[in-house]
Nucleic acid binder design. Structure first.
Lengths: 391, 391
DNA sequence: CGATTTTGTCTACGTATTGAACAATATCGT
DNA sequence: ACGATATTGTTCAATACGTAGACAAAATCG
């Protein structure tokens, strides 16, 4: 009798506790290194004996190593444990015209970093990147690589690792994935910039405990990454977080998505440039970078344009704050370089509602490295630590 | 050496797999009853021997019972397992003026149901409800009650089970909780109406697998419950989901929250009444119920008012669809009684964006019972099945 | 009436965490 | 100098759990 279809639900086996605890211990070592077994026991609440067994396995598999010996006022000296620095990850931060490639260790520390100018044309672009990675792998033969993490502008479906939507990218990222996997033998994980930054904040951020956090990535467009309940919120087809296309002004200018008055039309870098162009004739071709520099020199029109952008940013962030009530909202993008001038404007706009007094609004510690470090989270985030992997 | 604070992280013990599998099996029995041990094995993927042990424990603790014997074309007959129907939960659906109290079994089936008119004045109101529950408990001495679940208009903090915000309720729900716990000895779990409905859809809904779902509860105001990644999204202080106070129109009418043009000011039942009053002089005092009946009779002004409400509902739902990309958006409230007339309007508004083609928009199967049944989910949802509980 | 099929239980085994005992260090007081 | 004290990290028996196969019970078919 076959009354039921094959909806295998998620069960637990007798190996489940080890998987959970193993992951926990590895993450504690990653974030709090150097740390001794005894300290791990205290922090985690697990018995010292259990810690010893897990640590033994992690060392055997090459994830961690024993390091220096500590010093205490009394008693036997603790042996510190550290992430194995000979274990590394390739991190890619893809932009339309240029791509940053880095080698990081498992703690997200950047070992080397380089910018690759990507030529036009799909095949040329792919080859340029793959070759750069090949060279990087060859130059670091002493390192064991665990995978490649890619932060890209556009939405990626988690299940299929398939690119759904990448408006600003005119070459096929998906074939990059398969091409890179073939060329390197490493597994490739991709995700949206905003999602990657959210993961990065959670993995490498200052705060200890997990909490709800939204990353707002402001560049040509606006994308958001939502971290809630200990996970990224992905939504159907990985399309969650497209707050950039929430309508702010029903009578606003048209957007590429078919709607009008979308948040990103009013509050992106491109929007600020538009505001400036409207104020200053013959200023077409100006970059957002220049706009920021002008504002720092006291240029009135630049300041007006950026103020308007900041106000609109705040209006959209207010929506996020009302809708999701996260503990933190983190802004990533060039605008953060002049946060001291415009941060307060965004913040006051956000707080114009009785429900949005509590979120902490702040700029990302370092947007560029955040995107790179997130590659570590992407690669290690899922099943990397499941056990059958070897150094 | 005490280098670390007491951030006990969540560890797994050797009892963890049992907890997980126990929960899984109980939920399978709850949703698919009657079901045999062998079928549970096939559906879950766990061994028959494991199922037997778990089932033995669930029977011993009184959660489930053995029922009828099945019939097969061949082989030994399976013994069906069912939820213990002598195990029950008290469900409360609190509204400002009236409260519905029901007794349900653990599968969410309503055994009895009654409406209690709640008088003005805090102590009177509380006493009325507590007395009604006392009578109900006395009338069902044959049942063993596991707890009281309350669906209420306002936000409740999950951790503290503390009421944060209940604008339409002029009596202290929090003291109701402690008063009821003292009077009955049962534990009381409260949550927002929209959250409760979301849980109800997930626990008792048609779809088998978990998926992202947002419930939009439309009454005097608008509240939403967000279910994502297998959990309710609660946010800081339990304030996530206040989409009702997202600004739709910056020049719109003022809202009690201090902002203006909030979604609920434009799209709630109260908004529709306002639209009608503006069209028809001397119509003050009309209820939303009457408005619906007028529209069914073909009243032009009523139809205009509800159409406007539906359009604005759709605009807000579009924001939800863009921001969260859920698989389903479920509408709860009186408006669903005329879904055949206005559902399409809401849907077409929602889809006015390239990102919002895919969500399924539908009315709740039955809003009233959904709120009651959600009480089961509230009571059983957390640690009820942890093991140390007895019948 | 034996072969076949299906259900539900039983048993041996491997894997995990626990908690206490224990050996190895290192410092302090006398 | 030397025993008391404190701390780390390992070992070992006890216990809990899921697995996989064997097995008895029960029902139908040829």
């Amino acid at each position: 009798m076959q009354r039921f279809s094959f909806n295998r639900t998620q069960t637990a086996s007798n190996k489940t506790p080890r998987k959970i605890n193993r992951n926990l211990i590895f993450n504690l070592i990653r974030t709090k290194q150097p740390i001794s077994r005894a300290d791990l026991s205290r922090v985690s609440g697990l018995q010292r004996s259990t810690i010893s067994l897990i640590v033994e396995a992690l060392i055997a598999e090459g994830w961690i190593v024993e390091g220096a010996v500590g010093h205490l006022p009394r008693g036997r000296r603790p042996t510190f444990l550290e992430i194995n620095s000979r274990r590394a990850i390739i991190a890619l931060d893809i932009h339309p015209a240029q791509t940053t490639i880095a080698v990081t260790d498992l703690a997200g520390r950047i070992i080397t970093q380089q910018v690759v100018l990507v030529p036009d044309g799909a095949t040329k672009a792919l080859n340029t990147i793959v070759n750069a990675i090949r060279k990087l792998l060859a130059a670091h033969e002493d390192l064991a690589f665990d995978g490649i993490g890619i932060s890209l502008p556009g939405r990626a479906d988690l299940n299929l690792q398939k690119l759904i939507f990448a408006p600003n990218l005119n070459w096929p990222v998906l074939s990059l994935k398969s091409k890179m996997e073939r060329a390197t033998g490493l597994r490739v994980k991709m995700d949206n910039v905003a999602n990657a930054c959210a993961l990065s904040e959670v993995w490498f951020g200052a705060s200890d405990g997990l909490h709800d956090l939204v990353v707002v990535n402001v560049s040509e467009g606006i994308g958001t990454g939502i971290f809630a309940n200990g996970q990224l919120l992905r939504g159907e087809n990985g399309l969650a977080g497209e707050f950039g296309h929430v309508q702010i002004d029903a009578d606003g200018p048209a957007c590429a998505c078919g709607s009008r008055g979308c948040w990103e039309v009013l509050a992106s870098n491109r929007a600020a440039i538009g505001y400036y162009n409207a104020l200053v004739p013959n200023s077409t071709g100006i970059t957002f970078d220049t706009l920021i520099k002008l504002s720092q020199k006291g240029d009135k029109h630049a300041i007006t344009a950026l103020t308007r952008m900041a106000e609109n940013l705040g209006r959209g962030i207010r929506i996020i704050a009302v809708a999701l009530a996260p503990k933190e909202i983190v802004v990533v993008g060039d605008i953060t370089t002049v946060w001291h001038s415009f941060g307060a404007i965004i913040d006051s706009q956000m707080k114009k509602n009785a429900f949005t007094k509590s979120p902490i609004l702040r700029p990302a510690y370092d947007g560029a490295t955040a995107r790179l470090r997130s590659a570590v989270a992407l690669v290690l985030g899922e099943d990397a630590m499941s056990g059958d992997h070897q150094a």
